[in-house]
């Protein structure tokens, strides 16, 4: 797939308009996984603007994002970079065709302490 199309795909999946970003860094300031990430949340926006999707899909940040959505919640310009991370993950997951976790494995793993959001995130993430 052409790189440009990939960036368009990310924008389409996420519904994010990266051009709204004013580079304030609120997303990276809020991120609890910041230190684990090679590409930081605020950088996702410029990577998409610059069509550098290849680096994004190779990035380990995709699998370090907790999907806590603090960046989505706090972004003052409604750019919501967490959705870009999510869309980049989708690109990877879709290309590999399936989720790592199977739905019927869930009841076994289920722990009442576990936030449901985490399960949903795990579905998407631990495909590596």
């Amino acid at each position: 797939m052409h790189a440009n199309n990939q960036a368009e795909k990310i924008k389409e999946i996420s519904g994010v308009n990266p051009y709204k970003c004013m580079k304030c860094g609120k997303c990276s300031a809020s991120c609890p996984s910041y230190n684990e990430m090679d590409i930081k949340p605020h950088q996702f926006v410029s990577y998409v603007i610059n069509d550098d999707v290849e680096a994004l899909v190779e990035s380990k940040s995709l699998w370090k994002c907790l999907s806590c959505f603090a960046c989505v919640e706090r972004c003052p310009r409604n750019v919501e970079p967490g959705k870009l991370v999510d869309a980049a993950r989708q690109l990877v997951v879709r290309q590999r065709g399936m989720d790592y976790l199977q739905a019927d494995e869930i009841p076994e793993l289920l722990d009442s302490e576990l936030p449901q959001q985490l399960l949903v995130s795990a579905f998407r993430k631990y495909k590596r």
């Binding site: 580079k23 860094g25 609120k26 990276s28 300031a29 991120c31 930081k40 706090r74």
Partner: peptide
């Protein structure tokens, strides 16, 4: 850069989490 959150600590100080872009 911006500040993500300010967390009041038990000792009365404030923990500030921000980013240096």
């Amino acid at each position: 850069g911006q500040v993500g959150k300010v967390m009041p600590q038990p000792d009365g100080s404030l923990l500030v989490q921000g980013v240096d872009l």
